[in-house]
Simulated scan of single mutants.
Amino acid sequence: MLQTPYRHSRHYHGPVQAVVFDWAGTLVDFGSFAPTQVLIDAFKGFGIDITLAEARIPMGLAKWDHIAALGQLPSVDARWRARFGHSMRREDVDGLYAAFMPLQVERVAHYSTVIPGALPVLASLRERGIKIGSCSGYPRVVMDKLLPHAAAQGLEVDHAVATDDLKPGGRPGPWMALANVIELGVSELASCIKVDDTVPGIEEGLAAGMWTVGLSLSGNEVGLSLDEVQALPAAEVETRRRRAANKLAQVGAHYVIDSIADLPAVVAAIALRLARGERP
């Protein structure tokens, strides 16, 4: 019997079914300060000073991985070796993580004000029948503190995945994004949009076969509070916006916008592309 190779010829022409959001720097915490400032404080408890810029470099990873990646930065490694006589070991990462977690649980709500525009954008998605998923580099114990704090401000999602909910691991792998697909009952990966302010978060969406939208001004790449952004000269804001947008675009983000407030136009554009049979 002659067998011909299988060819995938089906094209999806349906609507956007789901948007999967990151949390810090995306839905809440303009500038993404809760993860970074607490990391600075945790390292300081071990006698190691790290800068905010250093703390932001591995942003988007699971927090244990984030701490390990910080320890591998040449500048941080030099300080660690000067103090302890060796590079950071696994047990050192465990110790830092154990010190970090209570601080993160205690302080996450302090930083997690809903980002302007998030509530009307989520409402508009629901009006269109689009499901709202989410995932985070935060572990479950932090998410359990963050979710009711966000709900008290009017922000609720249909599903939330924490980085330690799944055994395969966190970003940049696709697992948290795909867990949302399963839980939300999405039938087509191409109908999903991943929205994130970090490089690992964009890579996560791409690995999951989703459209990806990077956030420049509200997130980790600019790393300023809303008040700080508004106080800058327009030319400086544009310089920082362009630098952040270029970084997110270079790793493959299909679209880059300032913040979640600008998302509806992108959702509409992706819906038109899906209607033409385009895929991410």
Rank of each mutant, 00 (worst) to 15 (best):
T4E: 13
S9A: 09
H11M: 13
A18M: 08
A18T: 06
L27Y: 07
V28R: 04
G31C: 09
S32A: 15
S32F: 06
L39D: 11
I40G: 13
I40Y: 07
I40K: 13
D41A: 15
A42I: 10
K44G: 15
G45P: 06
G45W: 02
F46T: 04
I50E: 01
T51G: 06
A53M: 04
I57V: 14
G60V: 12
G60P: 02
G60M: 07
A62M: 15
L73R: 13
R83K: 14
H86V: 08
R90D: 13
R90N: 10
D92M: 07
G95Y: 07
G95E: 12
L96P: 04
Y97V: 08
F100G: 09
M101A: 07
M101H: 07
Q104K: 10
Q104V: 01
Q104N: 14
S112M: 08
S112Y: 11
S112D: 10
T113E: 09
P116V: 10
L119C: 00
L119G: 00
A123F: 04
R126Q: 13
E127G: 15
E127W: 05
G129Y: 01
I130E: 13
G133N: 06
G133E: 08
S136Y: 11
G137S: 13
D144K: 04
L146E: 12
L146N: 10
L146H: 07
P148I: 06
A150Y: 03
A151F: 03
A151Y: 05
E156P: 00
A160M: 11
P168C: 10
L178Y: 14
A179P: 01
N180Y: 04
N180E: 04
E183C: 01
E183M: 09
E183P: 00
E188L: 04
E188C: 11
A190N: 09
D197S: 00
V199D: 01
P200T: 10
E203S: 11
E204D: 10
G205N: 03
G209A: 03
W211K: 02
V213S: 12
V213F: 11
S218C: 03
N220I: 15
G223C: 11
S225A: 05
D227C: 09
L232S: 09
P233T: 10
A234Y: 06
A234P: 02
A235K: 11
E238P: 00
R240E: 07
R241N: 08
R241M: 06
R242L: 08
R243D: 05
A244W: 00
A244G: 04
A245K: 04
N246A: 12
K247M: 09
K247Q: 12
K247R: 15
L248M: 04
L248G: 02
Q250V: 01
V251E: 04
G252K: 00
Y255G: 10
Y255E: 08
S259L: 01
S259A: 12
P264C: 02
V266P: 01
V267E: 07
A268L: 08
A271Q: 12
L272Q: 14
